[in-house]
Simulated assay, not measured.
Amino acid sequence: MISGRIVTPDGVVAGSLHLDGDRIASVEPCASAADRWILPGFVDIHNHGGGGFTFTTGDAAQAREAAAFHLRHGTTTMLASLVSSPFELMRDAVLAYAPLVAEGVLAGVHFEGPYLSHARCGAQNPEFLRDPSLDELTEILKIAEGSLRMVTIAPERAGALDAIRLLAEHGTVAAVGHTDGSYAEVLAAVEAGATVGTHLFNGMRPVHHREPGPIVALLDSPTVVCELVADGVHLHDGTLAFAAHSAGSARSALITDAMTAAGMPDGEYDLGGLTVTVADRVARLANGSIAGSTLTMDAAVRQALGAGLSVTDVAAMAATTPARAIGLADELGALRPGLRADLVELDAELRVVRVMKSGEWI
């Protein structure tokens, strides 16, 4: 039995949560609930590493350690995100991470690139950017055997719509990001099957009232989940709240976009072959571009709550919505009977006390 203020999809229940093996059996009100917050285990669908370890090199040992670091911060389900890379690295990473996916350490692989815009590349290495290749994607999908969960594509690139259709046909999420595309081009990508907006506002043409661009197209598309980096750096809290209110918690997903430096001291780090300098928790390239984050999901939850969002909405954005975005909503992402017992226990200051995955305290 776990006691506290239990954040369910229907609201907060002061009571106890009961288990049946690795599953949630029931949530029951109780007058003597503990002074703890109980949230569903966080689901991070965009993460490049942390704790001094990276997902971007295709190294399984590094990936295992990065996942363990974020697990201690409440992330019980995560995708390993690579940045733009040569095809050989993409292929090798999928093969290296497939056993970790089978083991449950990772929920899958996310390729943020290389099919992205040079004009909006951000911290992506421009050397590796290229048009989408159906041959590359077909080979990766074949060897991945379901472990490739998401690919971010700029829809204005040649062949992008065909690539999005191919991914959708194979049950892999196509995301729109790092794009200088127009409103119409992004809507065409959504029509082709894109269902996620990669770190909304960042790496995108800004809003203009005569050419709304990607941001408005994604926010206004009812089938699209919008990723939001809630670190107070990528997004002002007012922008975070605006996006969450506009899309609703059912279409807003908190992500970390974390890199190796999450949980580490200030200094120099590598991201896809580019040197990143971290100072006062902010990661930047030499040209000033933000280069991922040093965020963890528990900190993202605190930031979102501080921006004025409700705890039920934040729990949905940190777990339920991202789980649904990558096709795992029937298995995890909420505190309700029948789902996997993944949860995070927070104290009154919203700091992690302990984390449960599959019914076991880690």
Rank of each mutant, 00 (worst) to 15 (best):
W37G: 13
D10I: 13
H46N: 08
H73R: 15
C30Y: 10
H73P: 11
G113S: 07
H70T: 06
S85K: 06
H48E: 02
S26F: 10
S85A: 15
L95N: 05
P114Q: 05
A33G: 08
R23T: 07
R64M: 14
D20A: 15
H18M: 02
S85I: 01
G113H: 07
A93K: 00
T54V: 11
A63C: 07
H18N: 05
V27S: 07
L116Q: 07
E28V: 15
D10S: 15
A66P: 03
A34S: 13
L100K: 00
L39K: 10
Y115I: 06
D92G: 10
L79R: 05
A123L: 05
T54I: 09
G122H: 06
T76P: 14
H48I: 04
L71W: 14
V43E: 04
A98S: 11
N125F: 12
H118Y: 11
A61C: 09
L100Y: 01
A93C: 03
H73F: 10
F87P: 02
C30D: 15
I24T: 06
T76S: 10
P99T: 05
P86T: 03
A80K: 05
A67V: 13
E88I: 02
V105Q: 00
W37D: 13
P99Q: 03
T54H: 06
A102R: 11
G41R: 03
H70Y: 07
A102E: 10
P99A: 03
A31W: 10
S16M: 12
D22C: 11
H46L: 09
N125A: 13
L82Q: 04
S16F: 12
T57C: 07
E28P: 11
R120L: 10
G21I: 06
C30P: 02
H110I: 07
A34F: 08
D10W: 15
Y115H: 14
G21A: 04
V101H: 00
R23W: 08
V101R: 00
A102T: 02
V109M: 05
N125V: 13
G49T: 01
G41E: 03
S26Y: 09
S84C: 14
A66I: 12
S84D: 13
A93F: 03
S85T: 04
A93S: 14
F87D: 06
A80L: 12
A119Q: 14
A80I: 09
F69C: 13
R23E: 05
D59C: 14
G21V: 10
I38D: 08
F87V: 01
H110A: 08
F87I: 02
A25M: 07
G52C: 03
H18E: 12
G41T: 02
L100M: 00
A14G: 04
H118M: 07
L79D: 01
A60I: 10
G15P: 01
P114W: 12
L116P: 07
Q124K: 12
T57D: 05
S84R: 07
G51P: 01
S85P: 03
G41K: 04
Q124G: 09
G58N: 04
V12W: 04
I38S: 08
E112K: 09
F53W: 07
V13E: 02
S84W: 13
L39G: 09
D20M: 12
A107V: 06
